[in-house]
Amino acid sequence: MSAALAAGFASPVHDAQAVFRCVMMAMARPGTVRRIAVPLDPPGCMQPAAAAAALALCDFETPVWLDEALSSHPHVREWLRFHTGAPVVAASRAAAFAFVADGRALPAFSTFALGTLDYPDRSVTAVVAVDALHEGMGWRLTGPGIPGETRFIAEGLPADMLDRLAGNRGLFPRGIDIVLVCGDRIAALPRTTIVEA
């Protein structure tokens, strides 16, 4: 372990559980914003909430893809590999998890694994950093996990994000599941959520 390598979870078993519960409830209740109460100081431009999700969910069985902003930092890859053992892959389509630090440069969904009709679960979960997460305003969200409708918006995503999400919804049951992070805050847009302006 190099001296520069930042620490992982202070309490691996309980921190992983707490982070997972947070991600799970975010996925179960799309458009709700939660705080990950596990302090982390990850390297580079990796957001603490993204780092927490990586530590809680990735291991040697999950190929991980990093965007340019993350892969260009010397310590991010090393930190991930040391703490999770996850193989960092260059081919985005092979990844079970994609970490995107620059939400504005989010690659097209079609560059990732979107599952098959037989196995729609064999699809990527993208953890995308944004500038801000707002609950109760902005986009109109409907679908499973949402009583009636709810308002939610994330700032710092591509201009055509709603079109992309509509396209993703059209693929159902195939599709990408998105976890949005900002600092220690987290929200999710699973493939079931209908997002409109």
Binding site: A16, M27, A56, L57, A96, D121, T125, P144, D177, T192
Partner: peptide, 24 residues
Amino acid sequence: DEQTKRMIRRAILKAIAIPGYQVP
């Protein structure tokens, strides 16, 4: 063990994202 929990947790996340679909 923690590795098993992670594997199951990943399956749970996909199960929530695809309601009613049976994740192996």
